[in-house]
Design a protein around this nucleic acid. Structure first.
Lengths: 135, 135
DNA sequence: CTGCCGTCTATAGTTCCTATAGGGTCAAGT
DNA sequence: ACTTGACCCTATAGGAACTATAGACGGCAG
């Protein structure tokens, strides 16, 4: 037995996405057009929820929609040729690791600022510009 | 003695930014308008390079320009009132930590895909959708 | 001194949303 | 049955953050 289908607003609330944004993703083919209810309302199932959640989190991490399309393709085409998958995952993995490095440096600096703030009532030496890949 | 000033193209190459984007950042006040050479070329110094590098990395991490403005303000105004700094850093830190979590889940899944790929010549079960905060 | 590349300003187009207008649907209350 | 309010629909316009293009000048290598 299937669960009660989700309306677009339910999906929006569950993922922190605006309703219009969901319709936009459908229009550009990132989300499949779902079945419609009698009243012509979009009726989603759980898999749409997973997919949308993934898209939104990737967006928040700075991935453009094209790259997200790539990543999603990895999940839906089981018979991908292996070398293509490898190239794609390796490239994305490298980027993800770079981002994690940058974030951890930024986090460290934010913590430092916050700590130096606890002492007095102003801060005086902020090295936030050095925080990310001083390279 | 000062270094030879950087032209806009040098800055672009050094930071992986398009020349037009740098001019755009200047126009919206994110980057200060630099001195000009005799030929009316923009002449940058090292500090512009640091600042631009920071901006670009933050953008790649999904921070909007407004938040980047905040972060940069933390570095330039030494006499920030402490409670405001604290609120700002705490909010950014929480977001940074969330992003790191998501990225590490994504990295793990990308590694898993890559590993399962090494064995055969196609992949069959991809759980990339579960990769980010299965929540 | 002639290419050719880099810079300049200014404007139009692209991506990824976001807001608004104008209208239909539905469950609850009266 | 009727209305009120929260939801849904399509369609279009606007905003943020670029990106591409046009048209003109600067500068330096051959």
């Amino acid at each position: 037995m299937a669960m009660a289908p989700l309306k677009i607003g339910d999906l929006a609330r569950a993922t922190g996405t605006k309703v219009v944004t969901i319709r936009y993703y459908e229009k550009i083919g990132l989300l499949a057009a779902p079945n419609r209810s009698k009243a012509n309302y979009r009726a989603y199932d759980e898999s749409a929820l997973d997919r949308l959640r993934f898209i939104r989190r990737c967006r928040a991490l700075g991935f453009p929609l094209d790259q997200i399309r790539d990543l999603l393709a990895l999940s839906s085409e089981a018979e991908h040729p292996c070398d293509a998958v490898d190239r794609l995952t390796a490239a994305h993995l490298a980027e993800v690791e770079r981002k994690m490095d940058d974030l951890s440096r930024l986090a460290a600096e934010l913590r430092r600022i916050s700590a130096s703030c606890k002492g007095g009532d102003t801060i005086s030496n902020c090295r936030i510009l050095d925080a990310i890949s001083p390279d």
